[in-house]
Design a protein around this nucleic acid. Sequence first.
DNA 1: TTGACGCCCAAGTTTTCCCATGTTAGCCCA
DNA 2: TGGGCTAACATGGGAAAACTTGGGCGTCAA
Lengths: 176, 176
Amino acid sequence: MAAGGAAKLRIPQPKSRAGPVVAVRWRMGRFLSTFQGRLDSKGRVSLPAAFRAVLEADGHPGVFLHPALEQPAIEAGGNRLLAEIDGLIGRFPPYSEARDLMATALLGQAEIAKLDPEGRLTLPERLKAHAGISQSLVFVGLGEKFRIWAPEKFTAHLEEATSNLRAVRAGLSRSG
Amino acid sequence: MAAGGAAKLRIPQPKSRAGPVVAVRWRMGRFLSTFQGRLDSKGRVSLPAAFRAVLEADGHPGVFLHPALEQPAIEAGGNRLLAEIDGLIGRFPPYSEARDLMATALLGQAEIAKLDPEGRLTLPERLKAHAGISQSLVFVGLGEKFRIWAPEKFTAHLEEATSNLRAVRAGLSRSG
DNA sequence: TTGACGCCCAAGTTTTCCCATGTTAGCCCA
DNA sequence: TGGGCTAACATGGGAAAACTTGGGCGTCAA
C-alpha cells in the first residue's frame, strides 16, 4: 500500500547524528497509540486529548496538515513536524526540481486546521479525499507527527508495518 | 484476598530496608520475578510494588505498553524500554518510508498507562485482546522490561521456552 | 439569503482521584 | 522465640474531573 508505482525521489540523508539528540527528544511529548474518531454532522472530529496535549506543549496554534507522500493518509503535527519538513526540503539543492517537488507536495498541499474550544477540528475536503475518509477515521501516533487514516486503509497498512518490523527484527538478531 | 491476593506464583519481595542495597548491587533496578494479578470490577490491576519501584527509579511517568511482536503478551516498561524502541526507529532517516513503518508498528500500537495513586493501571482493550487477558494475568520480569500474560498462555510459553532452553544447553555441551 | 465557520451550552461517558478496609510481612520486646 | 504492633500493599467503591458529542446562534462573505 505504500510506494505506489510512481517514481520515487531519492532523499538525501542527513549527517549522522543519533545519540544525544534522541535522548533529548524523549523528554518531549510524542504522539503515540491509535484512536478512532468519527465526523459529526458538521464534519468535525475531536482530536484525542492525548494528541492535543502534545500539540499544546509544542506551541503550535492549530494543526498542520498535509497529504502523506506515499500513503492515502493525512499527516499532521505542530512545530516539530514543520521543522522536520524544513530540514527535509533543505537537503535538496536550492532551485533544483526535486526541491520544488518536495515543497509543492509537502507545503503546497498543506493546510492549517484550527481547533474549536472543545478540541475538535474540521478536515479540508481535499485531504479527506486524499485519504479516502468519509465518516470514521483513525489517528495514529508516529512520534513527532501523527497520521489520519480511513480505518480500512489503516488496517492494511498496519499489516505491512508489522511484517516489516518482523523482518527488521530478524535481521537484527542475525547480525547482533 | 488482599496484599497477597497475588499468591500462587508469588515470590518473596525484597525485605523492607533492603531496597537501597538491592539498587546498589544491581546498579539499576530490574524487573524480576513473576507476580499474579487480577482485574477488578473497574478493570484495574495493581502493578506489583517491586515493579513500581523500578519504574519510579527510571523516572517514567506511567507505564509504556505495546503488544509483544511474536507472542500473545503485552510488553511494558519505562524510559529504558522507550529508549530501546527509539533507537530502533532512529536507525532510519526522518521521513523515510522505513522509519514510518517502524513508527507505525512500534509507536502506533503503543499506549501509555497512568498509574493511579494506589499504583494501579488499566490495560487498554486492544492490548488485553492481543494477550487474551480477561480477568487474571501475570507480570513477568525480563530485566529492562516486563511482560503481561494471560496465565494459561504464560504457562504454555514457559514450557516451550524451557524445553528450547534444554535443547540449547544440550547443544552447548556437545560442542563445547 | 444561504452556507461555512467559530463560539457557547448542555449532556452522557469515561477516567482519575480519594478514602476506607482487609491482609501480609517485618520489627520490637518480653 | 512467640506475639503483638506497625508500615506496606492490595482492593473496593463513591465522588469529582476530564473528555466527547450533539446542537443552537451569531457573524462574515459569496
